[in-house]
Design a protein around this nucleic acid. Structure first.
Lengths: 178, 178
DNA sequence: GCATGGCTAGTAGCGATGCGACTATATAAC
DNA sequence: GTTATATAGTCGCATCGCTACTAGCCATGC
């Protein structure tokens, strides 16, 4: 056996759509239609990020191609045709758990990716305290690199207000997690 | 002549890409390559919204098809092939000026569309004071409709922090415009 | 008894987007 | 004269968002 199975530890790049589908499968085997239901507009997760049915199936295809998800088995549907259950592979489970514990790199990713992580953690009774702490550190680094005088440029001004909003949001979260 | 030329007053729906291209042409006739230069990453406008060259040309095609832009003439290039100058039509000029004076409807559009309007106004020496005032009113309406207790849900919590950031950003802008 | 509507399960396909890569023209460098 | 570089514009691919479709199964109505 060569040095290590590095590939399982290398950071896997997926779109938020793919991550959330993988994240849902990590809760237990499911078929595309059921996953799509959880991600409809207005549902718990759908309020954070809506994913339409065709996109769910396309994400599943790509996840299977990437060997992060595999076909589990086919069973009769509730009231309709057969359905195909999918489940994450060992690599898939590892990847999604590492993703769930990893803070996002940019403020613009807080809105969707970070909130997704919080909800998915809660649904699986995983603790988000460390994630929140790490995210605050990342944000503090970002803020330290911001232009000191944002008065000169509207983009910088916008960024500084946004960074402060993100900071107080994370502080609120931190408080509500004790 | 029938009743009115209503179509010139009806609100025209374009993507931010199309608006910014039309907005640049409103500064004077230009060819696609020059427009693309202004919208490269890192430039004045490109820092707000980057538009790659192929997208600029596609936007021009659609604007011409919508009769908001027309071919002006062809002239020899600086150091290369001939170039085709475009300029807004009468309808195009009207549409872009109305767009520039219209606040955006959602907080998520402040980052790109609203900042674009501010910059494009400044470049053409148009006053943004009224735009800022109108935008503050729109935002106040939005905030009035927010959940009163954002403590129950992370999405609501995020939204309320973001709305407050937008408010203080607009207040800052208002102050710097006296 | 069979048709009609409705839910389940999945697919097809269109138009827009983002991006890299390509052609082609003219000037400058050596 | 060849090669490099900047100008000017186009092609094509993969993805995304969405509407609309097929198809299976059940319930209700008459």
């Amino acid at each position: 056996m060569d040095q290590t199975n590095q590939s399982t530890n290398r950071r896997i790049e997926l779109s938020p759509t793919e991550w959330v589908v993988l994240g849902l499968l990590a809760e237990g085997p499911a078929h595309g239609f059921a996953v799509a239901k959880e991600l409809r507009a207005g549902t718990d997760l759908g309020r954070i990020m809506t994913v339409h049915r065709p996109l769910v199936y396309r994400a599943l295809d790509r996840l299977v191609a990437a060997e992060l998800v595999e076909h589990h088995h086919t069973e009769p549907g509730d009231a309709g045709p057969n359905r195909t259950l999918h489940r994450p592979t060992r690599r898939g489970r590892g990847a999604v758990n590492r993703w769930l514990d990893r803070p996002v790199g940019h403020i613009r990713e807080l809105r969707i990716e970070f909130l997704l992580k919080l909800r998915l953690n809660e649904r699986r009774s995983r603790d988000s305290t460390k994630l929140i702490t790490k995210q605050r550190r990342v944000l503090e680094d970002t803020m330290a690199r911001l232009t000191c005088d944002p008065g000169t440029d509207v983009v910088d001004l916008w960024r500084s207000h946004n960074a402060r909003a993100a900071k107080s949001f994370l502080d609120d979260l931190n408080r509500s997690h004790h």
